[in-house]
Simulated assay, not measured.
Amino acid sequence: MTIEAPETKIVDSYRISCDGGEGALGHPRVWLQIPNEHGWVECPYCDAKYVHKDFAETTE
């Protein structure tokens, strides 16, 4: 059995929310702050990685 890699999303804002995106199968909405130092943050519930568009080229 293989485990899928967490989803990576490119975003325009340094403050974003994540709710798992699957309606009732998601998780509680959390607000995340992307640090200016490295330009990305991971959701503590679903491990989705949010990358600010200014850092999209450097984190892949």
Score class of each variant (00 low, 15 high):
residue 36 N to M: 05
residue 50 Y to E: 03
residue 49 K to N: 01
residue 35 P to C: 09
residue 51 V to S: 05
residue 32 L to G: 08
residue 28 P to T: 04
residue 26 G to A: 05
residue 36 N to S: 10
residue 53 K to M: 01
residue 24 A to G: 15
residue 48 A to C: 13
residue 22 E to W: 14
residue 60 E to H: 12
residue 39 G to K: 06
residue 38 H to S: 09
residue 43 C to N: 08
residue 41 V to K: 00
residue 18 C to D: 15
residue 43 C to Q: 05
residue 44 P to H: 12
residue 9 K to W: 03
residue 4 E to R: 14
residue 33 Q to V: 09
residue 45 Y to T: 00
residue 11 V to W: 04
residue 58 T to H: 08
residue 57 E to P: 00
residue 54 D to V: 01
residue 44 P to V: 00
residue 16 I to T: 04
residue 51 V to I: 15
residue 15 R to E: 15
residue 45 Y to I: 00
residue 52 H to A: 06
residue 51 V to K: 04
residue 26 G to E: 07
residue 45 Y to N: 11
residue 54 D to S: 11
residue 30 V to S: 08
residue 22 E to Q: 15
residue 7 E to H: 07
residue 55 F to S: 07
residue 37 E to F: 01
residue 25 L to Q: 10
residue 16 I to F: 02
residue 49 K to T: 14
residue 57 E to D: 13
residue 48 A to L: 04
residue 30 V to H: 03
residue 25 L to Y: 15
residue 37 E to T: 10
residue 13 S to F: 04
residue 4 E to H: 09
residue 57 E to M: 08
residue 51 V to W: 07
residue 26 G to C: 04
residue 14 Y to V: 01
residue 46 C to F: 04
residue 33 Q to F: 05
residue 59 T to C: 10
residue 28 P to I: 03
residue 10 I to W: 02
residue 18 C to K: 07
residue 22 E to V: 07
residue 44 P to T: 00
residue 24 A to T: 13
residue 17 S to M: 11
residue 18 C to M: 08
residue 42 E to I: 06
residue 32 L to H: 09
residue 39 G to L: 05
residue 23 G to S: 11
residue 20 G to Y: 10
residue 12 D to L: 08
residue 24 A to W: 12
residue 50 Y to H: 12
residue 44 P to K: 01
residue 30 V to Q: 10
residue 19 D to I: 04
residue 16 I to M: 05
residue 7 E to Q: 12
residue 40 W to Q: 13
residue 20 G to D: 12
residue 34 I to F: 07
residue 21 G to V: 06
residue 3 I to V: 14
residue 45 Y to R: 00
residue 9 K to T: 12
residue 43 C to S: 09
residue 22 E to H: 12
residue 2 T to D: 12
residue 11 V to M: 03
residue 14 Y to L: 15
residue 3 I to S: 11
residue 57 E to T: 11
residue 37 E to I: 08
residue 58 T to D: 10
residue 29 R to T: 15
residue 5 A to T: 12
residue 26 G to I: 07
residue 34 I to C: 06
residue 24 A to S: 14
residue 17 S to F: 08
residue 50 Y to N: 06
residue 31 W to K: 11
residue 35 P to G: 05
residue 18 C to P: 02
residue 42 E to M: 12
residue 57 E to N: 10
residue 31 W to H: 13
residue 48 A to S: 12
residue 10 I to S: 02
residue 13 S to I: 00
residue 1 M to L: 08
residue 39 G to P: 00
residue 44 P to S: 07
residue 28 P to Y: 04
residue 23 G to N: 11
residue 6 P to W: 04
residue 14 Y to D: 09
residue 26 G to T: 03
residue 53 K to D: 01
residue 55 F to K: 06
residue 50 Y to Q: 01
residue 57 E to Q: 13
residue 9 K to S: 09
